[in-house]
Computed example of a mutant assay.
Amino acid sequence: MTVGFSCVRGRFAPSPSGPLHFGSLVAALGSYLHAKSQGGQWLVRIEDIDSPRTVPGADSDILRTLEQFGLYWDDSVVWQSQRIDLYQDYFEKFRQQLYGCQCNRARIAALGGIYDGHCRSLGLAADAGPLAWRLKSAGVNTEFLDLFRGTQQIPTALAGEDYIIKRRDGLFAYQWVVVIDDVEQRISEVIRGADLLQMTPRQQALCRTFDAQVPVYGHLPLAVTAPGHKLSKQNHATDIRHFAPAQSLTAALRFLGQQLPPDAELLPVTELLKFALQHWQAAAVPTQPEIQINSFN
């Protein structure tokens, strides 16, 4: 049981920008097995806050795919697009820690990609034109303990950056909404892909800003077709439904370093998941950031 929470609650939070692929299955399966093996709950959240990237119908396809693989969730599914008022309430509550920014991407890119706080002292008002809203950085650690990888560090410049929580187009940023959702859903552990590892100290600090308990974070290796080329919806990774469920689950369990039963690919999905839950070993999860695969792409 995670200290500070009444029960273990994990989550899988896909963006509906396309169908689930093998990398998505790895993240879903890893978060599911770690939570359920502790007798905990596993939730599903549809992260559709970035509406321009949302593909109509992808959310329903994702939920059907999870059911096809025997990954059934506890509690109601949450859609971020239905929680805008909640995110705005937090925005108003913590407005004193925010400031408007008129800097464009070109300027920040010229700085090397890390924002320099240029607008922090300008006191720009909402009527000054389209503004992004940034959170004043305070108390962001450069180090955290990862469930699978041990002590991890991020660059000092990244830890000190005032990052965007509301974009110039009026959409709330991922960093803001994901922490609000985790707090509101009482998520005790966040098991996800290693591509989000460097964002963890920010999210931990934001939990503390909200006076909320900080979840445990664990990052799974990414499935890549070549070094630096991860499977993703954006590069049109193959829909996992094109493969037999038992075959895909077996491959995902092998990817996660887990023990397999005899003739795993021939078992019903329910039996394969039952075995996986009984034999889940967090210590066996590979600690490298990427693992190259030759199929499922």
Score class of each variant (00 low, 15 high):
166 K>P: 02
118 H>Y: 12
278 Q>C: 06
189 E>G: 10
95 R>Y: 13
297 N>D: 14
235 N>L: 02
226 A>I: 07
12 F>V: 09
168 R>H: 12
10 G>M: 02
170 G>R: 07
51 S>P: 01
109 A>M: 13
39 G>E: 12
223 A>Q: 10
93 K>L: 13
127 D>E: 15
100 G>K: 01
228 G>T: 11
257 G>C: 06
126 A>Q: 15
105 R>H: 12
289 P>F: 01
193 G>L: 07
107 R>K: 12
83 R>M: 11
215 P>K: 06
76 S>W: 04
288 Q>M: 11
257 G>Y: 06
247 Q>G: 04
80 Q>I: 05
167 R>I: 04
56 P>C: 12
282 A>N: 09
40 G>T: 05
234 Q>G: 03
283 A>C: 09
162 D>I: 02
110 A>R: 04
153 Q>H: 14
226 A>R: 13
15 S>K: 04
112 G>Q: 11
175 Q>K: 08
150 G>L: 11
116 D>M: 04
220 L>C: 13
213 Q>P: 08
162 D>L: 02
174 Y>R: 01
291 I>W: 06
59 D>N: 05
151 T>W: 03
64 R>Q: 15
227 P>G: 10
186 R>W: 09
13 A>M: 03
30 G>R: 07
48 D>W: 00
171 L>T: 07
94 F>E: 06
26 V>G: 04
3 V>C: 08
106 A>G: 12
248 S>K: 05
178 V>D: 09
88 Q>L: 10
231 L>K: 02
136 K>W: 00
267 L>T: 03
287 T>I: 09
111 L>N: 15
20 L>F: 07
296 F>S: 03
4 G>W: 00
172 F>S: 12
149 R>Y: 05
194 A>D: 14
190 V>W: 00
89 D>W: 04
249 L>F: 07
157 A>W: 01
99 Y>S: 03
126 A>C: 09
159 A>W: 07
238 T>M: 08
223 A>I: 05
273 L>H: 03
189 E>F: 01
159 A>S: 13
142 T>D: 13
230 K>C: 04
141 N>C: 06
1 M>K: 11
42 W>G: 06
105 R>V: 07
238 T>Q: 14
233 K>Q: 14
159 A>G: 11
185 Q>C: 10
72 Y>R: 12
255 F>P: 08
256 L>R: 05
130 P>K: 08
259 Q>I: 03
247 Q>S: 13
228 G>P: 07
183 V>Y: 02
191 I>Q: 11
198 Q>R: 13
